[in-house]
């Protein structure tokens, strides 16, 4: 009857979103009077007993180098086997590229209702109802799962990490390796940068920056704050910035703690990808720019004058503290 959390990893390291999923899983378990366990697939470098701090009692590890290559079919088979052997009732994923590939498959195998993009703990006062983000962050839907088994994928940055002092027990789950249906022939990580989907702070630039040669403003500020960089769609389309930086309705949807938009007008399709950010700062020279309506803080001014001053001021603040 336990809750099982899928811990996603990259090159042997647990992803930040998985700590959120672990915290969420532990709380969900608490609500229904049970405990949370975790499954980790692949050869890990991190110490898995640390997951205890996030409320996980037991970690089932399948430590096999070959499994560091992702295949939704293989991962689903392994998780299903563990679900059967632990009799888990609810399975939690992060709503990221891995979670989105595995959870729907697992839902079919377990005959479990799936809610993807959850933003809050389930409400179990009458049935099992989960609030999820819909209309690209413009609204929420409360979804009831009718089946006994349940699968939830949690939106990144939607649930705060809860950290205590527990130590998780680690057990190796031994099973035969299912056949791969996909061959991973190459992996390209954008090295040195913070992945956009996981970033706490995102600095984003739009067409107002006039050209790629001016992107130093964005990247300098990002470096200073340990932030990821993003851009509006036209900026990616005219190749000022790489495609993977494009946020919005048709790009990546993000929900960082802080989103700073520089020279972006704030079209509704752009907002759809960023409106779940906790704090939004807009720097735009046009006081009528629609983005100001969605912002928490704003400066009406020329980015080329304002941003360097902000950078100086942050440097000053950092040297003082």
């Amino acid at each position: 009857m336990s809750v099982l959390v899928f811990i996603d990893q990259a090159e042997g390291h647990i992803k930040k979103s998985s700590f959120e999923a672990a915290s969420y899983g532990a709380k969900t378990a608490e609500l229904s009077g049970t405990f949370a366990e975790a499954i980790v697939i692949g050869q890990m470098k991190d110490d898995l007993s640390e997951l205890g701090k996030y409320g996980i009692k037991k970690v089932h590890a399948i430590s096999n180098e070959a499994l560091n290559n992702f295949d939704s079919k293989v991962y689903t088979t392994l998780i299903q086997q563990l679900v059967e052997s632990t009799n888990a009732n609810t399975v939690i994923f992060s709503n990221n590229t891995s979670g989105k590939s595995i959870a729907p498959r697992l839902s079919i195998r377990m005959k479990a209702g799936l809610v993807s993009g959850a933003v809050a703990l389930p409400d179990i006062t009458s049935g099992f109802i989960i609030k999820k983000s819909v209309f690209s962050g413009k609204a929420f839907a409360n979804i009831k799962i009718h089946t006994e088994k349940k699968i939830i994928t949690l939106n990144p940055n939607a649930f705060n990490i809860i950290k205590g002092n527990g130590v998780a027990e680690i057990v190796e789950f031994t099973t035969t390796l299912p056949a791969y249906s996909i061959e991973v022939t190459e992996t390209n990580k954008i090295v040195g940068d913070v992945p956009l989907s996981e970033a706490d702070i995102v600095i984003s630039g739009g067409r107002g920056l006039k050209g790629p040669e001016n992107w130093g403003l964005v990247t300098d500020l990002a470096k200073l704050l340990g932030a990821a960089t993003a851009c509006s769609r036209p900026v990616a389309d005219i190749h000022w910035r790489p495609h993977h930086e494009h946020v919005g309705q048709t790009g990546l949807a993000i929900a960082p703690n802080l989103y700073i938009a520089i020279g972006i007008s704030g079209a509704i399709q752009h907002l759809a990808g960023v409106n779940r950010s906790k704090t939004i700062v807009v720097i735009n020279k046009d006081p009528e720019a629609p983005f100001f309506k969605a912002a928490d803080y704003g400066i009406v001014g020329d980015a080329f004058e304002v941003v360097p001053k902000i950078i100086e001021s942050i440097k000053k603040m950092k040297s003082l503290s």
């Binding site: 992803k15 249906s181 061959e183 991973v184 022939t185 990580k189 954008i190 956009l196």
Partner: peptide, 14 residues
């Protein structure tokens, strides 16, 4: 080519 968190991956499949 598929997107993964913070990068991309090349896959081959039948």
């Amino acid at each position: 080519i598929r997107e993964i968190d913070g990068g991309e991956e090349t896959n081959k499949a039948a």
